[in-house]
């Protein structure tokens, strides 16, 4: 049997344009927020805390991009922050930044699959594998991104800048409770970040401290309100 050679330009049907705000059935898709940052800065812990803070009010799912294991996904499963069907691990062939920026096809499959299987969803958190300071998310994959660094990684990171620190929609400086022990100057980090980011927001957070993830959760709620408006 032969297909004919007509090529009308259409975008209907499943798996349409990546950044399209609507699903094939016309409903608005979930807001997608990416979390990136260096290894050990607390991305997975922040995701877990966000899930605990938001799961009563929102329909949530998480995609993890692990470098060579499923440990981040398994941490979330062990912590029981979400039921297992709401957590998907994407394998990245040793290049996590490729999977969130240069070739987002596997992540797009994962977010769409989650919406198909457990939807409707309000919010999908896409966590990057721990990478370097240049890793950012493609706009074809996420609607907003959070960059997580920590005080123990060196208090000169905000000053050094880089795409993550400079352009992320929210910069989180994590583990502030450790600052006295590692000799990091919180005030200087905040000032450097402000200088790099102009009007873009910065949150200083300690997940062990009193406020916990409250400020980041509030920022997510605001993004969601803007998305659904």
């Amino acid at each position: 049997m032969h297909l004919d050679h007509t090529h009308p330009h259409t975008h209907d049907g499943p798996a349409a344009l990546s950044a399209d705000a609507h699903r094939p059935d016309g409903r608005r898709r979930a807001l997608r927020i990416g979390l990136g940052g260096p290894v050990g800065s607390g991305k997975t812990a922040t995701v877990a805390a966000l899930c605990r803070a938001l799961r009563d009010e929102l329909s949530l799912a998480v995609v993890t991009n692990d470098i060579y294991t499923r440990e981040d996904a398994e941490f979330l499963l062990r912590e029981a922050v979400l039921p297992p069907e709401r957590i998907t691990a994407v394998e990245t062939g040793a290049c996590p930044h490729t999977a969130i920026r240069d070739d987002i096809s596997a992540n797009l499959e994962a977010v769409e699959e989650l919406e198909d299987e457990v939807g409707p969803l309000d919010l999908i958190l896409v966590e990057s594998g721990g990478d370097n300071l240049t890793a950012t998310f493609s706009k074809g994959l996420v609607d907003a991104q959070i960059f997580v660094i920590d005080v123990a990684g060196g208090d000169d990171i905000p000053r050094k800048g880089g795409p993550g620190v400079t352009t992320a929609d929210l910069l989180v400086i994590n583990k502030t409770d450790l600052a006295p022990y590692v000799g990091s100057d919180l005030a200087r980090m905040a000032a450097d970040a402000k200088a790099q980011r102009a009007e873009l927001p910065v949150v200083l957070q300690s997940l062990r401290g009193e406020g916990g993830v409250t400020a980041v959760a509030q920022w997510v709620r605001e993004r969601l309100a803007a998305w659904t408006a």
Binding site: V90, E91, T92, G93, C95, T98, A99, D102, D103, I104, S105, A106, E109
Partner: peptide
């Protein structure tokens, strides 16, 4: 190889 179709994650 940079055509964004997922090949980079497979050996």
């Amino acid at each position: 190889g940079r055509f964004p179709a997922g090949g980079h994650a497979h050996s």
